[in-house]
Simulated scan of single mutants.
Amino acid sequence: MLGASNHWAWRVERVRTLAAAAGLPGYEVLQYHHTYLRQRTDLPTLRSPDGDLGVASGDLLSYLREEPRLTPVAYSPLLGGAYVRSDKPLGPEFDHVGTPARRAALREVAADAGATVNQVVLAWLMGGDVPMIPLVGASSVAQLEESLAAVDLELTPGRRARLDAAGGSEAGL
């Protein structure tokens, strides 16, 4: 199985087209940074003056919806603890109007579901219209058990709708 990480969607498609034309296997797994909070993707990075190509942006998510045979993997979905730890601030890529609304919706859904914020983030990723395999790190058995419990957390359609609606137009960032 071949995979790629942190490429523009057009570049992934180009490689898959070239591989198919040559009778070779193409990418089957795509790994990108993706989480419930939306990041600005327009900020230049060291790898690209055009923005952050390592983030699952709208064009990549749209591409994945049209290519259901591709398996998306989301790395750092819990933002290194930033969802639950005050000593782990979010970076400037999260500094926009949608972040506070999405954080509030996340806390409300977690309380309503009797789950942790981290479990809701992971369940949201796994059960979305573009299901993601979250790549989760744990530094304790308790953290691992918390993350594994997210597999059994099924977000109701109402809860998912609340999460998806929060933050409004910032989703295009």
Score class of each variant (00 low, 15 high):
residue 31 Q to I: 12
residue 97 V to N: 06
residue 97 V to H: 11
residue 65 R to T: 15
residue 55 V to E: 06
residue 47 R to M: 15
residue 150 A to D: 13
residue 80 G to F: 00
residue 154 E to S: 15
residue 162 R to L: 12
residue 163 L to M: 05
residue 87 D to I: 06
residue 141 V to S: 14
residue 22 A to W: 07
residue 8 W to D: 13
residue 75 Y to V: 02
residue 168 G to W: 03
residue 163 L to R: 06
residue 149 A to C: 08
residue 166 A to Q: 03
residue 12 V to N: 09
residue 80 G to S: 04
residue 96 H to F: 09
residue 49 P to T: 15
residue 106 L to T: 10
residue 63 Y to W: 13
residue 3 G to R: 01
residue 163 L to N: 05
residue 69 R to N: 05
residue 17 T to A: 14
residue 146 E to A: 08
residue 133 I to C: 10
residue 126 M to Q: 14
residue 6 N to E: 14
residue 124 W to P: 10
residue 144 L to D: 07
residue 5 S to P: 12
residue 159 R to S: 14
residue 79 L to W: 01
residue 108 E to K: 09
residue 134 P to T: 09
residue 18 L to G: 12
residue 123 A to S: 14
residue 107 R to S: 12
residue 27 Y to G: 00
residue 38 R to Y: 01
residue 127 G to M: 05
residue 149 A to S: 13
residue 98 G to Q: 13
residue 105 A to N: 06
residue 135 L to S: 13
residue 43 L to M: 12
residue 51 G to C: 09
residue 109 V to G: 05
residue 74 A to D: 02
residue 31 Q to Y: 07
residue 77 P to V: 01
residue 115 A to Y: 01
residue 147 S to F: 09
residue 45 T to G: 11
residue 171 A to F: 06
residue 39 Q to W: 03
residue 105 A to F: 06
residue 99 T to R: 11
residue 172 G to R: 09
residue 145 E to D: 14
residue 41 T to R: 12
residue 52 D to H: 12
residue 135 L to T: 12
residue 7 H to V: 09
residue 109 V to Y: 03
residue 138 A to H: 13
residue 43 L to G: 06
residue 21 A to Q: 15
residue 71 T to F: 00
residue 63 Y to N: 02
residue 4 A to S: 15
residue 89 P to C: 03
residue 118 N to F: 05
residue 79 L to S: 09
residue 81 G to C: 01
residue 53 L to F: 11
residue 67 E to F: 02
residue 125 L to E: 12
residue 68 P to W: 01
residue 101 A to W: 01
residue 49 P to W: 06
residue 162 R to A: 15
residue 115 A to Q: 02
residue 163 L to H: 08
residue 88 K to I: 12
residue 131 P to L: 06
residue 61 L to C: 07
residue 169 S to W: 06
residue 128 G to H: 10
residue 44 P to C: 07
residue 81 G to P: 00
residue 19 A to D: 00
residue 28 E to L: 04
residue 25 P to D: 00
residue 115 A to M: 03
residue 137 G to H: 08
residue 80 G to I: 00
residue 33 H to G: 12
residue 109 V to I: 11
residue 105 A to T: 13
residue 76 S to R: 14
residue 72 P to M: 01
residue 43 L to H: 10
residue 20 A to K: 14
residue 128 G to F: 05
residue 112 D to A: 15
residue 103 R to L: 14
residue 37 L to K: 02
residue 106 L to Q: 10
residue 131 P to C: 08
residue 54 G to N: 13
residue 70 L to G: 00
residue 167 G to Q: 00
residue 52 D to K: 07
residue 37 L to H: 03
residue 167 G to D: 01
residue 166 A to H: 04
residue 116 T to K: 05
residue 133 I to M: 11
residue 154 E to N: 09
residue 47 R to I: 15
residue 48 S to I: 08
residue 82 A to R: 15
residue 70 L to S: 00
residue 157 P to F: 03
residue 26 G to Q: 00
residue 1 M to T: 02
residue 110 A to W: 02
residue 128 G to E: 05
residue 16 R to V: 02
residue 113 A to L: 10
residue 59 D to Y: 02
residue 45 T to H: 11
residue 41 T to L: 04
residue 118 N to M: 05
residue 66 E to W: 04
residue 118 N to P: 10
residue 134 P to Y: 07
residue 31 Q to K: 11
